[in-house]
Nucleic acid binder design. Structure first.
Lengths: 276, 276
DNA sequence: CGAACCGTTGATAGTATTCAAACCTTGTGG
DNA sequence: CCACAAGGTTTGAATACTATCAACGGTTCG
């Protein structure tokens, strides 16, 4: 066995699994959550968000809305943007509040929540690196956005961003493409919420997350779960206990193992069948 | 009591309700389904869709995406569009098919469905007059569209429409606004599907539909339900029996009465409380 | 060390589904 | 005109899946 080389195979975890319940190597846990945003094996040198050079060497640009912009246009985008960081549980914006800003997530995970007066909560999505918040450009936020992990994001005032977009139809076009994609994901989620069983929901959730990580970084059978079980439950329309029970059921079926801060998928094909 | 004058109060139904189970006047039923698209009392002279004059006197233009266009632009829109009608249960397009066309519904009701391999179905939305199908402008349809009632729609080939849009950023802007609204509705629906009880789902559905009818025609406590109970069930993530039972429960609570082809809301405030 | 939080597991309850049958409406054909 | 078939709706009884309530184990942090 080769140690510390193949990130994708997560050897540190393998060791932990075999040693049974030995305290997790904290570095391993960190590596897993980092996977969401980092591509390639040199995780230590991974720097997301804008550096001193601004958007030019932004790691998320190519798969984000900014990918529609020419290098010359990025300079002005730089000028109207500011990098902001949010601690876990911090609020980026609240449901129904006036939309003063829009954000482009460059690092970390954000949950998008809707709540009922009595406290019931539905998470309508998780935003990862490259995702744009406030895509609809509406004057009020329809959801709340809360940092799950430490989050880094480019912030624009909505008015400045609108002015910027108005001069650039190709960017609007790109925004619209992203909105269309979001809408399609929302429809998939409606199918999941309305018609799938708990097991199908959890399996589909894990596969989905894996695919999303793959699009922004390394494809791996290690799927970090930076969000809490309660978050997952509120995303899938389940009770927290049902999420927990279903995960252990999937473990018994040998479809996955639970590792610190996430899961390792043992049989993607089994999960795909379970996900319906 | 005044007969045949006040459409909004639906006097014909009142009579029927009081006579208890007397066979419904077929005209009354027809009036109700027409309410979805007709504003004002002269339902008989109501003509939706493009007439010989094209888009200019289209009844849905002002609250549809076309509302962003100047009169001069409508001429060219006319040229690339064709009016099409669909019989109930006809398919406008199928899930995952190449998106060859986009549609603007001018009359009738369309259901947007997603299905699982085993037949389970989720309706992700009902399109009414003024709604645009294919808003996302993606190259494949993410849902199937099926006529619930007789449907009239303006059809555009996707390529022609894309070319038309490319020359008109203000139309793209309007399309994006509509997409943002759709996304917001989808998020509301996720909250409903994931976190609401059967009673809350049904109450919210009826109030929502009433509000939508109000936006495109006459606000009325009469809410036509042209779709089947199965359709409602598949929209709300319930079994057909649960929808039926919940409706009769709402009748027992005196929140509404069931009339041919729809319901009449007796207490909107009661329903609003039940909808959470 | 204890409090707080998160996750897991067990027992129980409840809501919605499933299965089944009856009812109603509509359309067809004798 | 009535009988009958077909499709949709409603109602009833039993089941099942998931939620709720409760307790416990593990980790973190002061």
């Amino acid at each position: 066995m080769h140690l510390g080389i193949d990130l994708d195979q997560g050897p540190l975890w393998l060791i932990e699994i075999k040693l049974l319940k030995i305290r997790a190597n904290p570095k391993a846990g960190h590596l897993m959550t980092s996977l969401a945003a980092c591509a390639g094996p040199e995780a230590s040198s991974c720097q997301h968000g804008r550096s001193a050079n601004g958007c030019d060497d932004c790691k998320v640009r190519l798969f984000s809305v900014c990918g529609a912009l020419a290098s010359s246009e990025l300079d002005e985008l730089d000028r109207i943007s500011q990098v902001r960081t949010f601690a876990p549980k911090a609020t980026l914006f609240e449901q129904d509040a006036l939309a003063g800003s829009v954000f482009n997530v460059t690092e970390g995970v954000v949950r998008l929540c809707k709540s009922l007066p009595d406290g019931r909560r539905q998470i309508v999505g998780f935003a990862l690196a490259g995702d744009f918040l406030g895509l609809a450009l509406m004057d009020r936020y329809s959801v709340a956005a809360e940092a799950v992990t430490e989050v880094r994001a480019c912030r624009f005032t909505r008015s400045a961003f609108l002015a910027y977009v108005d001069d650039r139809p190709h960017l609007l076009r790109r925004l619209h493409e992203f909105a269309g994609h979001e809408l399609s994901l929302a429809q998939d989620q409606m199918l999941l919420l309305g018609r799938k069983t708990a097991e199908e929901k959890v399996a589909a959730f894990l596969l989905n997350l894996q695919a999303r990580y793959g699009r922004i970084g390394t494809t791996s059978v290690n799927v970090p779960l930076p969000m809490s079980r309660q978050d997952i439950a509120d995303y899938l329309g389940l009770a927290i206990e049902t999420v927990s029970r279903t995960l252990t059921k999937l473990v018994r079926k040998k479809a996955l193992v639970i590792v610190p801060d996430g899961v390792r998928l043992l049989s993607v094909t089994a999960l795909e069948q379970l996900a319906a």
